[in-house]
Write a protein that binds this DNA or RNA. Structure first.
Length: 325
DNA sequence: AAGACGAAAGTGGTTGA
DNA sequence: TCAACAACTTTCGTCTT
């Protein structure tokens, strides 16, 4: 794990810093911005510019959230299928691929949208009475909790909040659990910002816990709240897989090229993007003599070896790829 | 012995009647 | 709501390195 000492903060994982005293922090240790969103009750500060999260070292408040995170983080970093977002990224390549940053996020909130979010967040500080406001505050808390567990940047939470508010206004939340809808809103926000993450990861960490439920709410948001998202792109998954397998940048370029050609041929329609990305990385690896076993790639992409084999066969056949060992 | 391959059966989601 | 369907997973036997 990459640990960089930047007194008085300690960088732990990507986009996260641990500090002794949260009150001493007034600039973001990652980007230097002074636009910090404070959440003292959580012992956490988030940078509204780059999404970096700054936490206090001591664990003494917010029991459910705190008890959950370190354990979960520990578990995920040692055993079981890897969760891309929780793992550290090799320092050699981390500089250029910060998906939490503004470039990878694709787009920023407009000033008007940002004002809206700040206004919503201010409700935390004043006493409120309307059902709508209480609902939104609860949603906000769950969004923050979930986003923290998944390591999602501030911009995604804010976007999700706006999506959620639209859903409430359209009456879509009635009869559904807040946690399912907010999880769906976060997922939609991720998709809009092209952050490659699967619904399963949300299901694992959401209070709702039910993948089906979240998926249903997600479809509802797309259809009835007219949230526009792009189709999941295999290319977005390539980077995640590459990072886990420690492959050379040339391999990534080739994998992306393969995916590009596959898309042009219309091979990707209806297929799991992670499976395609996995096969492309596998093939590109072989072409560069950077062999990784199907098992390794499958693990990194969270698909099975069989799926990789199927995509592999299709790609090699349809794109006439030669030069394989 | 480990990896690759492929067949067969099972699972969960989508679609259309 | 139900059945058909495509994609994916699991499991397992066999071949290859």
């Amino acid at each position: 794990m990459e640990v960089i000492d930047v007194m008085p903060t300690i960088r732990t994982t990507k986009g996260e810093y641990i500090v002794d005293d949260i009150n001493e922090i007034d600039v973001c240790p990652a980007c230097g911005s002074t636009k910090l969103v404070r959440s003292p009750e959580r012992g956490e500060i988030a940078c509204s510019q780059c999404g970096t999260v700054i936490r206090v070292k001591t664990i003494d408040s917010g029991p459910e959230w705190r008890a959950f995170t370190p354990e979960e983080r520990d578990r995920r970093s040692r055993v079981g299928p890897p969760s891309y977002l929780s793992i550290s990224i090799p320092s050699s390549i981390s500089a250029g691929i910060d998906w939490r940053g503004k470039d990878a996020a694709g787009k920023r909130l407009s000033p008007k949208q940002r004002m809206e979010v700040l206004r919503l967040r201010r409700w935390h500080k004043v006493s409120v009475s309307s059902a709508l406001e209480r609902n939104l505050i609860q949603a906000m808390d769950e969004a923050d909790r979930l986003a923290s567990n998944l390591g999602l940047p501030q911009t995604v939470r804010d976007e999700a909040l706006l999506i959620y508010k639209r859903a409430v206004e359209k009456g879509l939340v009635k009869g559904r659990s807040i946690s399912s809808v907010i999880a769906a809103a976060l997922y939609a926000a991720c998709r809009r910002m092209r952050i490659p993450i699967t619904l399963d990861e949300f299901a694992k960490h959401s209070e709702a816990g039910d993948r089906k439920d979240i998926a249903r709410c997600y479809r509802l948001l797309i259809r009835d709240a007219s949230v526009r998202v792009s189709v999941a792109d295999p290319a977005d998954f390539v980077e995640r897989i590459m990072n886990l397998l420690n492959l050379k940048p040339e391999v990534q370029a080739d994998a992306l090229e393969i995916i590009k050609k596959a898309k042009e041929k219309g091979l990707t329609a209806g297929k799991d993007p992670a499976g395609f990305a996995a096969a492309a990385v596998y093939i590109a690896g072989l072409l560069h003599g950077e062999r990784r076993t199907q098992k390794e790639v499958a693990r990194a992409a969270q698909v099975t070896e069989v799926t990789i084999r199927n995509r592999y066969k299709e790609l090699v056949w349809e794109l006439n790829i030669s030069g394989l060992p």
